[in-house]
């Protein structure tokens, strides 16, 4: 099985005035295709920074990153935008929907940048919203939706371009327990369909629903655990 993600010696250093702040201090990580991974760790340990590098939103200061066999370290900004659009779906803690656009328009947006025709965009966005159970809320703006509903719109937007990898940075962080479980059920469903899903979370019971838990501490990986309770456990 090819690795979805292969990272070696990933460093991220921010320069704050005169001092360099080292946030990631050499991460070596391999994530297999189809895996379901939780990243845990204290606040400020570098989880989001790592996710952003995985998602091609940010570039490492040093190290190598290979996604689906493609070396991204040297890829141009345009190339990274293409990878984000075609291969990756993002889900954020704060949903990050366009507030002036309807649910349908939000879900259509990734396809705008993929150059898909308007008619097809509408059809596929509507199908994606139906899939997350929001078929009757397509004309609503984010302010007219509950938090859980907004996160489901974000998931629909993440999956509409049929990505290989879905990255969710604390997707349930702003939700109550009930809606958290609904959102997790959707992400689990995506993983069941073969999409590699990586989530950042603080909550052990959320992490427990994944296959593999990685601990980050102070910019380094601090061990990991396999979840044996799951049946669809990927072979090593």
């Amino acid at each position: 099985m090819t690795a979805m993600i292969w990272m070696e010696g990933i460093h991220k250093t921010y320069r704050l005035g005169e001092v360099d702040v080292s946030v990631l201090k050499g991460i070596d990580l391999t994530i297999e295709e189809g895996d379901y991974v939780a990243i845990m760790g204290a606040s400020g340990s570098g989880k989001s920074t790592l996710m952003n590098i995985m998602g091609c939103l940010d570039r490492p200061s040093a190290g190598h990153y290979v996604l689906e066999g493609q070396n991204l370290t040297t890829l141009s900004n345009e190339g990274l935008a293409y990878v984000r659009n075609q291969r990756i779906g993002f889900v954020f803690q704060q949903f990050n929907l366009l507030s002036r656009s309807t649910a349908l328009e939000n879900v259509m947006l990734p396809m705008v940048y993929a150059g898909i025709s308007r008619r097809q965009r509408q059809q596929r966005a509507a199908a994606a919203l139906q899939r997350v159970g929001l078929g009757d809320r397509m004309g609503n703006r984010p302010s007219q939706l509950s938090g859980g509903q907004q996160q489901r719109v974000a998931i629909a937007r993440a999956l509409v371009n049929r990505p290989a990898l879905v990255l969710a940075d604390e997707p349930t962080g702003a939700l109550d327990t009930q809606t958290s479980y609904e959102v997790m059920a959707l992400l689990t469903e995506l993983n069941d369909q073969g999409i590699t899903v990586i989530i950042v979370t603080h909550e052990p019971d959320i992490a427990a629903q994944t296959h593999r838990i990685i601990h980050v501490q102070d910019g380094l990986l601090q061990g990991e655990a396999r979840n044996h309770g799951r049946t669809s456990y990927p072979a090593d």
Partner: peptide
């Protein structure tokens, strides 16, 4: 922020 969102979902410069 809107620009960030658009870029995150694949908008090129």
């Amino acid at each position: 922020r809107e620009i960030g969102i658009r870029k995150a979902i694949g908008a090129t410069n």
